[in-house]
Amino acid sequence: MTEQDQGQGQTPDQTAPAPEKKEKRQLSLNVVSNKEHRGFGAGTIDLSAVSCVIIDQGEAYIDVGAMHAKSKVEKGIKFSPDKELVPNGRLCWIVWVAVDRSEEGSYYAGATACPMLVDTEARRGWKILAQHVNNLDYAIKRRFVLSELSAEEKAALRGLLIANNQEWWDRSPEELKQALA
């Protein structure tokens, strides 16, 4: 530093102040709607009220990994939209279950089932990703799409929902109870 610089109040030990850090925005899933957009994150949905149920060989169980295609049955499987590539696949289901809350308490508000074929030995599978996304959306929108499930699969899902929380089942819409009867 020159004497001239020091005369302006700067010393060799001083450093320029650090620039202010901008707060990092959290990314979230946006849903397109006809509402006016109000900036970053507007129209976001909360997926914490959605659970993933897998039905495999007559057994239903909760597997949160299915939200990101990393459920127990999906791990290590290369999926294709071509059903012909999975001739020996077994039928499995992902059921998206949405929970809502009313004055009486929580209840199962939406449930939709999506098929997939899984051949564990060949490490190949079939599913239609668009159907999985649409059915997740339908569950969030409080719809029930369960008609493709067999009687055994419906019974397994019904049993799991009741065992998970009997009170939620009791408060659930009659439409769900009829769909799983």
Rank of each mutant, 00 (worst) to 15 (best):
Y61K: 07
Q4F: 14
D137I: 04
G89C: 09
A163R: 15
E74M: 03
E23K: 15
Q14C: 01
K70I: 08
S48P: 03
Y107D: 03
T120P: 01
L129S: 12
P12R: 07
G125H: 03
N135D: 15
G41W: 14
A49D: 06
D170K: 13
V86C: 07
R124M: 13
V64S: 09
D13K: 14
K70R: 12
Y108L: 04
P87Y: 07
S71L: 12
Q26D: 06
T120L: 02
A69E: 04
D63I: 05
V118I: 08
F79S: 04
Q131E: 07
S102V: 05
K35C: 04
T2P: 07
E74N: 00
W169F: 10
L91E: 12
H37T: 04
C92T: 11
A155D: 06
A60K: 01
A155M: 10
L27V: 08
V53N: 07
W126Q: 00
A66D: 08
Q14L: 05
E167L: 12
L136R: 14
V64T: 05
N164D: 14
T11W: 11
A66L: 09
L160A: 08
A60V: 02
R142E: 07
E23N: 01
W169V: 10
E174K: 15
R143C: 09
Q10N: 12
R25V: 00
R142A: 01
S106M: 12
Q4L: 10
W126A: 02
K72I: 09
V31H: 05
W93D: 10
A18C: 02
N34K: 07
G125N: 00
K70V: 05
Y108T: 01
A113I: 01
V31P: 04
L146P: 06
